[in-house]
Design a protein around this nucleic acid. Structure first.
Lengths: 358, 358
DNA sequence: TGGGAGAATGAAAGCGGTTTCATCGGGAGT
DNA sequence: ACTCCCGATGAAACCGCTTTCATTCTCCCA
């Protein structure tokens, strides 16, 4: 039982009890249920505790009570802006409600996710699983042990927060149709992603409704590179606009277009999703706002509220993502003006930018 | 001792012991000191443990041993790509070495940082403090209780990882000087930031060495908006190139320039720092690589290695950031060619992009 | 004035591990 | 063949706190 280095012997409840001339139970109660004690006793105990610099040991308390005051947030990739934002919202909300947050990055792999869930289980009161890569039975196994709230995954009977970006994508397709585009593409992630599937479906349906031809492109792991690499395919397919699964891919597409001397939105329109980094490019990206931070905060609320009830959290909470129109979308190019290498329009299309004020 | 809701009785060491027909002590040893046991016994125990889904309870272990197997990572803003990347590296390294990671976002405030340190202290074996906003005495106070490693802060006697970007900035100034720029600017964050100070100094010194005039601009909290907003000032100051405290600000500057119809690098050169998101714009940003992920991983290593020693970690570990030349830097514009709104050069300057392969 | 109800407190049994110390066999040395 | 010693395992104490249950002690009311 070697103590870790650099740790001054911390005063324990026993010492305080001795010093104050009461029992350990009384000291304990002075901290957790003072209403059971005489005000005088409470004062005496708290006084000596303060004098001794005593602070209740959270670990011991957790072992005894079974509640840790911690939650864990597991997500596929911290470096992805969507998850960073989500994490920020979640962590802040947890802190606000008195909980500390473990972070687990699964590096997009189901296996690591499983390991993290297992390792952390004893140290937390519940999990928030963002876009889990784990298969359903495994998720349910873990959910049976500890309360779990998932984000962006449809699992009946498990608490979940869903960011419904379908309306935003539908609106985006409508926007493009109105701008005269006749052939568009959706650039998605692998089908394991619930979000990407949902978005693909919305684009396909809206495309049909507007009489557009819709190409579906799978970019693989969503990254800037992936977006850039699929530009050749997009141009070959003859589309004049692309909707991407997220802003990172959308920016990749913009970079790929720029490399070829094509301007946005003059020659090609691009729509992203998440709206975290959409405003940081030039031209700023038209994007579907996913309210990531709010999704994180809501998930934490759902989880924490569930602690009070005997039953696990089970409701589903839907957040609707709306289209934010900026300057990466514009009128479809005339059929022959393409590939002429015209310089980018300086001010973008005449679409408003309702979010530039934020 | 009400258990939290929704908790199936987790298998304990006792159950495994019964099931495997051995004592608790043996089960414990099978996990923590298997070399004391017969290989056959170990196998038997681990087998039944696996079958039962037993995982050692970290909380109980922590109470007994005094070491939690956790560390905490405190940083000013999770959403900032620099810290996201750092976090990713830190978390991965901690996991690799068997530690779980608490995340604390201080929202750039010293007070929250202090609270987090206090709340988490009992649950972790040590802290990694990235770019702490806390004042020195308070940091030392916490460091006296638990091992602490700081990133990007110079505190004698406390373990620290410093990302030395000065050489990169010096090289960047040299590059700009070679390209014919005579008046440049450094766009920094408030002076509370060690990194920004260090960079400002490097730019000033290198500028003097090359006979350039160097303007110092304080952009406030480093953000895309801040970068965009300072463009007017930059142009008014008559500089033809700017070095920014980080890539986010650099991208803001690029956006501000684009809004005014100025092309990069045709009319103006921009250099960023961190190199996390530098390659995701068009033109891709020349940037000083800060090796964020490595900084995070190194900090964790420093902290964890310190656990073995009786004394707290105290060394300083320096990571040198090198300049990565991409396409946002080019020859200084001819004095009169400015503001003509020429389209961006399609391929950027003739500078190589050594990192485009990554 | 006696009997309870109830409030304040204490004793002690866990929570789920780790670790010391004792125990038990079984070669090796002579 | 008889110690001696060591390697493998078990029994039990302990980590610091919570909580049940028992114990006192008051105080109120019949």
């Amino acid at each position: 039982m070697t103590r870790p280095p650099n740790t001054k012997p911390t005063p324990t409840i026993r010492l305080v009890a001795q010093e104050a001339g009461v029992s350990q139970a009384t000291v304990s109660r002075a901290f957790s249920q003072p209403e059971l004690l005489t005000p005088a006793t409470v004062e005496k105990v708290l006084g000596t505790a303060l004098r001794l610099g005593y602070v209740p040991n959270q670990v011991a308390r957790a072992l005894s009570t079974g509640r840790t005051g911690n939650i864990a947030l597991i997500l596929p990739d911290v470096a992805n802006p969507f998850f960073s934002a989500l994490m920020r919202g979640a962590q802040a909300q947890a802190y606000k409600r008195g909980y500390a947050t473990f972070l687990g990055d699964s590096d997009e792999t189901a296996h690591l996710e499983d390991m993290l869930l297992g390792k952390l289980a004893a140290q937390v009161d519940g999990f928030v699983l963002a876009s889990p890569r784990l298969d359903e039975p495994l998720i349910r196994k873990h959910a049976a042990r500890k309360p779990v709230v998932v984000i962006n995954r449809e699992l009946e009977g498990i608490g979940r927060v869903l960011v419904d970006t379908a309306p935003g994508f539908t609106a985006a397709v409508g926007l493009l149709a109105g701008l005269g585009h006749r052939a568009i593409a959706y650039v998605g992630a692998p089908r394991s992603s619930w979000s990407s599937q949902q978005r693909a479906r919305a684009v396909a349906q809206a495309g049909t409704a507007h009489g557009l031809s819709v190409a579906q492109v799978d970019a693989g792991r969503p990254s800037h590179e992936a977006g850039r690499d699929c530009v050749a395919g997009l141009l070959a397919a003859g589309v004049t606009a692309a909707l991407a699964v997220d802003d990172v891919v959308a920016q990749g597409i913009m970079a790929g277009l720029a490399e070829r001397g094509l301007s946005v939105p003059g020659d090609f329109s691009v729509v992203g999703c998440d709206d975290i980094i959409a405003a940081t490019t030039y031209p700023p990206l038209t994007s579907v706002n996913a309210r990531c931070a709010r999704a994180g905060a809501n998930a934490v609320d759902l989880l924490l509220n569930g602690f009070a009830n005997p039953a696990p959290p089970t409701g589903s909470h839907v957040i609707t993502g709306e289209l934010v129109i900026r300057s990466s979308t514009g009128p479809a190019p005339a059929p022959d003006s393409r590939a002429s290498g015209t310089p980018p329009a300086e001010t973008g299309a005449a679409t408003p930018d309702p979010s530039s004020r934020k």
